[in-house]
Simulated assay, not measured.
Amino acid sequence: MTTIHVAGGIGRAPTAMAAYDAALADANLHNYNLVAVSSVIPADATIEVVDRAPDLGAAGNQLTVVEGRSVVAPDEAAETATTAIAWATGPGPGLFYEASGTDPDAVEAAARRGLDAGCELREWEFTDRDTLVSTVDADGGGHTAAVVLAAYGDSEPIC
């Protein structure tokens, strides 16, 4: 059975990429090459929400993730960087849906609306739903980033 760790992080730095990297470090997912997948949770997976992801393998390995990401530049008028992942599970496969933006309530609502729409497309039974939101105040002193990642199992060597 695969464990999918869901973790959020925030970061601030002088560039957008550095702020993103700092947010990944906050979630302890900064040392992997992330491979993004769309949204389907395998039927045998379990979801574990964590403050920081555990060690999932060697640095430089590839790690499969569903990722929500929001980065705000210092010259933007936004007050926050916010992202969310919502998920639904049941006795069979499940779904993740992500949303990003600058309004925490709107981002969470968008992730849930998307999840509802995705569930309606499938004839699967969904018994449990949850959401993780990551938000950080944009202080204007640099780039600000928020991430939420669902990391599938352990990392694997790239080659």
Rank of each mutant, 00 (worst) to 15 (best):
A43Q: 10
G101F: 07
V65R: 15
C119P: 00
L24H: 13
E123D: 10
V35E: 14
V49N: 05
E123P: 00
C119S: 14
A151K: 13
T64K: 15
D128Y: 13
A84I: 02
S155Y: 07
I10E: 02
C159Q: 13
V66R: 03
F126C: 11
D139N: 04
V50Y: 08
T2E: 12
S70V: 12
T135D: 12
E79I: 01
A13K: 10
C119Y: 01
G142C: 05
A18V: 00
A110K: 15
A77L: 09
P14S: 14
G142T: 11
E48N: 08
L63I: 11
F126H: 06
E123H: 03
T15L: 01
S100F: 04
F126G: 10
R129M: 03
G118K: 05
G90S: 08
G68C: 08
V50Q: 06
R69T: 08
V107K: 14
G141H: 06
A59D: 13
D75C: 00
A145D: 14
G8Y: 02
E123W: 01
E79S: 10
C159D: 15
T64D: 10
D128Q: 13
T131Y: 02
G90V: 03
V66A: 12
D103S: 09
A7W: 00
V50E: 00
A58L: 09
N31F: 00
D154I: 05
W87E: 06
V66I: 09
D75N: 11
A73M: 01
H30R: 07
R112Y: 03
Y20V: 01
N31L: 08
R122F: 04
A145Q: 13
S38N: 14
G92Y: 09
L121D: 13
L56Y: 03
E76I: 03
H143P: 02
H5M: 00
D154C: 04
A86H: 04
P104N: 09
D75F: 04
P14G: 13
Y152W: 12
E125I: 10
H143K: 00
N61D: 14
G60F: 12
A58C: 01
L34H: 15
R122C: 01
V148M: 14
A109N: 10
A23Y: 11
R129P: 04
A150W: 02
I10G: 04
Y32M: 11
P157F: 08
V71K: 06
C119G: 06
E76S: 15
P54T: 10
N61V: 00
A19D: 10
A43K: 13
G11E: 08
A138N: 14
A7F: 02
H143C: 02
E125D: 15
D26R: 13
G8S: 05
S39C: 06
I10D: 00
A106Q: 15
